[in-house]
């Protein structure tokens, strides 16, 4: 049985904004019956391009329904340009997290939103242009590349969890590996100017402290938490979560998905953040 958060259960049992909008400004259809989940998203704008109403219809499991419901709640009342910035991670976060095998449900939400916006603007969907990598689920290389970059994916399994690519016959696994390697290469090409290739231990500690102070602490403090650097041993960064974070059930997710990601982006992409006991 999947471990769903109360918020996922709530949005599944009592989905918000189910239905269709007549004369909708934006309509986005993603997924298919064959794939096992599908979502049609509708939105209506006012004259200032603010989303005044959003509705959905979803075929799929609990997390697909909950992600759709959450998405409509998130975009209602905000300007289209703001809605455009919503990522699948935002949807998952709104729901208090999704099981990792179910992340593709949040990706489906983001894709439906994109499709609806493209419909409104009368432009073709950029993601559908790519070359189809996974034939079982019709996933293009552009979609895979984007998921790798946005969610910092590191394995074929993670790509499957987020995009479904590779979850069927498995023939595309080699190609997915290739995309992973390409993505890692590109990341290294883009950021090296920001990060020195070699760091002494002291430089490393200093950089980590700086990132924690500048970016991580202010965010954690907003939720009543805090973080302290305990030790740096090679690539292992040992920290201690304080305040509200110390007792939070999601602290591991915070450590891995947020703290580790930040440090990897800005200090060294081999760092591993762990909690000191």
């Amino acid at each position: 049985m999947w471990e769903y958060t109360d918020k996922v259960r709530d949005h599944f049992m009592n989905p918000r904004n189910v239905g269709e909008i007549e004369n909708a400004d934006g309509i986005g259809e993603v997924g298919s019956l064959a794939c096992g989940d599908a979502l049609t998203l509708y939105f209506k704008l006012d004259e200032t391009e603010r989303i005044v109403d959003a509705k959905f219809k979803t075929f799929g499991c609990a997390s697909a329904i909950a992600s759709s419901s959450a998405l409509t709640e998130m975009i209602k009342g905000i300007p289209l340009v703001e809605a455009e910035k919503i990522t699948n991670e935002d949807i998952a976060e709104y729901l208090g997290g999704l099981p990792k095998e179910k992340m593709h449900c949040s990706v489906m939400g983001r894709e439906a939103l994109e499709a609806a916006i493209a419909y409104y603007r009368g432009i073709p969907l950029p993601m559908a242009e790519g070359e189809v990598v996974c034939e079982c689920f019709g996933v293009t290389d552009l979609e895979v590349k984007r998921a790798i970059a946005e969610s910092n994916l590191r394995s074929v399994e993670e790509i499957t969890n987020f995009t479904k690519a590779g979850g069927g016959c498995g023939k595309c696994h080699d190609r997915l590996e290739e995309l992973l390697r390409e993505a890692r290469h590109e990341v290294q090409q883009i950021i090296p100017d920001k990060r020195p290739t070699r760091l002494t231990n002291i430089q490393k500690i200093k950089l980590i402290e700086e990132v924690l102070e500048r970016e991580v602490r202010p965010t954690l403090r907003k939720d009543g938490g805090d973080i302290e650097l305990i030790d740096v041993d090679g690539d292992f960064v040992i920290v201690s979560l304080r305040g509200a974070c110390g007792s939070c059930k999601k602290s591991q997710t915070t450590l891995k998905e947020y703290v580790e990601k930040k440090l990897r982006e800005q200090v060294l992409d081999t760092l591993i953040v762990e909690e000191g006991k």
Binding site: R9, F12, M13, D37, F59, A62, I65
Partner: peptide, 11 residues
């Protein structure tokens, strides 16, 4: 037809 099993089970 047209509904998904997990959603049925959870209900």
């Amino acid at each position: 037809e047209y509904v998904e099993g997990e959603a049925i089970l959870l209900h």
